[in-house]
């Protein structure tokens, strides 16, 4: 047990330090975070998605094979239940992007509960932040292309209200439409994955800490590890939900940018 605890290389109260994994290239360098497990996982997620869709769509058949059926289900789910549902008929145009986004987020999140990997790159704010920036730039671009710059800004900043109250309302509109949106998109995903990893760490390492402190606490330790497994299943729910929420909100923002005045 003590050996295992040192293998995990983490002290009991887990801290933010636990999210900064040792450098792989150069091997074992101190305070070097350019190429760590996180980097590897991000690229693995990208590679897996590309390979998965290439393989499953290589020889598409009218009566799909199992793999093709699965890939088509994923795409069909995002297209019909997110893109078209949220954006309307034009949502089909955005289905490829939304599917990619959905797959990427769910893969990245899923690393959080794969045994022996058990950390999601999305538990670093950088990854959700970049994804949020992509969505942010996209819905603004789409809105400007649809309405023209002036009309888009007018649509999104000026609510239907009497003129004398507008100076009070426009700052709120600006804040909620252009500042809160990307921020909440990124933070929601990041915080969920961060907290999930933290929770699993607390229960796993807490078990070791208790059994090391007093052998009589062994039953509690075992209970703690069982709870880790239970929490892993809970985490699976969070993973799917957050990937879905991220995609749905992106679609919703695109819809808002495309819509005419309410």
């Amino acid at each position: 047990m003590i050996v295992q605890s040192t293998v995990l290389a983490a002290e009991f109260p887990p801290s933010v330090e636990d999210f900064y994994l040792p450098s792989i290239l150069p091997w074992g360098a101190e305070n070097n975070y350019w190429f760590t497990k996180i980097t590897v996982l991000a690229w693995v997620a990208v590679a897996l998605i590309i390979v998965f869709f290439l393989v499953t769509y290589r020889k598409p058949q009218l009566v799909p094979s199992k793999k093709q059926w699965f890939a088509e289900s994923v795409y069909g789910f995002v297209r019909n239940n997110i893109a078209v549902e949220m954006i309307g008929p034009r949502g089909v145009n955005f289905a490829p992007y939304l599917t990619t986004l959905f797959c990427f987020v769910i893969f990245m999140n899923f690393f959080g509960i794969v045994p022996l990997i058990q950390i999601s790159p999305n538990s670093h704010i950088a990854f959700p932040a970049i994804l949020a920036v992509i969505s942010y730039v996209m819905f603004i671009y789409v809105g400007i292309r649809q309405h023209g710059f002036v009309k888009y800004v007018k649509n999104s900043l000026i609510p239907p209200a009497p003129w004398f109250i507008l100076p009070l309302l426009i700052p709120i509109e600006f804040f909620s439409n252009f500042l809160v949106r990307p921020f909440s998109l990124a933070v929601r995903l990041f915080a969920n994955m961060f907290a999930g990893h933290m929770l699993l760490l607390v229960f796993t390492l807490g078990g070791f800490a208790m059994i090391n402190a007093n052998a009589l606490l062994a039953p509690v330790s075992i209970l703690s590890w069982i709870l880790t497994i239970a929490l892993t299943f809970l985490e699976f729910l969070v993973i799917c939900l957050q990937a879905y929420v991220f995609t749905v909100l992106t679609a919703s923002y695109v819809q808002g940018a495309l819509a005419d005045e309410h």
């Binding site: 019909n80 309307g88 008929p89 034009r90 089909v92 145009n93 909100l249 919703s252 819809q255």
Partner: peptide, 20 residues
Amino acid sequence: GQEPPPDKRGDDGSPPPDTG
């Protein structure tokens, strides 16, 4: 069932009911 949604790429049609 992978039927494409009806009336795809049409620009008219009411906006979807509850979009966030």
